[in-house]
């Protein structure tokens, strides 16, 4: 086994990952590694397979071949909810929240307790739950909107709510798909501030187009093109890579 040769244990090890949709390889023999407390940004042109990579890690899409190890656990064999319970959280591109419930209820459902049928029936909204919901609501700027129906929030607030729903899960690996897309300038600033606060003490995998934002937060950048890695490294290294300039940054 290779494990003996690896200098340290990675939180997430994606190896030879391939998924093909009717012969089209959306992700092709992809390998990358994410360390503890690392902030990794994935960039790449449209159709490069960025969102598919997140779909594969969180179990939404099943891999054709390859492996995804999270803390030594093989994720490709687990169901979506088991992957979440293993400590991987995912935010979708368009805000994915429960319109029919209030902000409080949205956060409460994401609270990592009472996840079985019996657990949900006997779940008590105790002081610890309330305190945690309020704490997270404060972080996502929605403390005074707890009783508001989620459908009445603005687009930016919905994005924050979904980030909050992930936060309350307290995942070790947080995956964010374009967290600032479609936000106003002031919302963008607040979101960057929010993200900078919540990415401490966990690893984060982000897809983002906003280069200013990427430069602000990324430890390492992976550039994807046509389902394969084009370049990987620090923002400076990637920015000056002629291959990257050609397909992505150049135009």
């Amino acid at each position: 086994m290779l494990i003996g040769h690896q200098p340290k244990e990675f939180l997430l090890a994606v190896e030879a990952l391939t998924v093909s949709f009717d012969g089209f390889k959306a992700v092709n023999d992809l390998s990358f590694y994410v360390e503890e407390n690392e902030i990794r940004v994935i960039i790449g042109p449209n159709g490069a397979g960025k969102t598919t990579v997140l779909d594969l890690i969180c179990g939404k899409t099943k891999a054709t071949s390859g492996s995804i190890q999270f803390r030594g656990k093989e994720l490709t064999k687990l169901k979506e909810n088991e992957i979440v319970q293993a400590g991987v959280g995912r935010k979708f591109q368009t805000p994915s929240i429960y319109d029919d419930l209030t902000v409080f209820e949205n956060l409460e459902i994401s609270y990592p307790k009472g996840r079985s049928v019996y657990g949900a029936l006997t779940f008590k909204r105790d002081a610890a739950v309330r305190a945690r919901v309020e704490e997270v609501a404060e972080m996502i700027f929605l403390k005074d909107r707890l009783d508001t129906g989620a459908d009445l929030l603005s687009h930016g607030q919905k994005q924050w709510l979904e980030i909050g729903m992930l936060l309350i899960q307290d995942p070790e690996l947080l995956m964010l798909d374009e967290p600032v897309a479609g936000m106003s300038v002031s919302e963008r600033v607040k979101t960057a501030e929010l993200l900078n606060r919540i990415i401490k003490d966990r690893s984060v995998l982000v897809i983002e187009h906003d280069m200013k934002f990427v430069e602000d937060i990324a430890h390492k950048v992976t550039v994807l093109n046509q389902g394969q890695i084009l370049s990987e490294g620090t923002m400076d290294k990637v920015k000056n890579d002629p291959k990257v300039i050609e397909v992505y940054l150049g135009h």
Partner: peptide, 10 residues
């Protein structure tokens, strides 16, 4: 409302 979100909340 959002079956997938529930799944991805564990």
């Amino acid at each position: 409302d959002k079956e997938d979100r529930v799944r991805f909340s564990g």
